[in-house]
Amino acid sequence: MKDGVLGQLALTFAAMSLGAIGGANAVVPEIHQQVVTLHGWLNDTTFANLFAIAQAAPGPNVMFVSLIGWHLAGPLGLVVATIAICLPSSLLTFGVSRIRRRMMEAGWLKLLQTALMPIPLALMAASALIMAQAADHTLLTVVVTLGTALFVGFSNRNPLWALTAGGILGGLTFLFAGT
């Protein structure tokens, strides 16, 4: 059983590695589709909770994938999932780093950047929608989501403030309202 999960983790995450333009947040809809809808490894709430924990920790956002690996198959799952999501894109980067002086002229790079930008943005918007559907069950959580979106979108302060505020609000509501 466990070997089966490890193998499937490796395949699932390696297959989406090259799609993660702009980072792992672009593949959250794909991860949700595979891990929650198709395989049924996690339910919506756990999926959203693990995402939140990964956001609260330092480091690059691929660590959400590491955390899913940990949750499903322990330390080995963490290692397998992390390597799977990193390896294909890392090999591509390594190859490009070797040839970039000849291939990548500044003008081309700029064009490529403007052309690619809408794709990760759209995928991230889809991620946000999935996360909000999983996380927002009460009026308060909807307000927290919208408030954080405005805070992050229009100020340059550290987003960790908003995550902390969300946690405190959640805790206080529980203590005072008992819901």
Partner: peptide, 24 residues
């Protein structure tokens, strides 16, 4: 109580992704 706190952080994390999209 931990579930309530994580629930709040999770709602904020969804907003964080929305906000990043707005900013970019």
């Amino acid at each position: 109580v931990v579930q309530a706190v994580i629930g709040g952080v999770t709602a904020a994390a969804a907003g964080l992704v929305f906000g990043t999209v707005i900013k970019l």
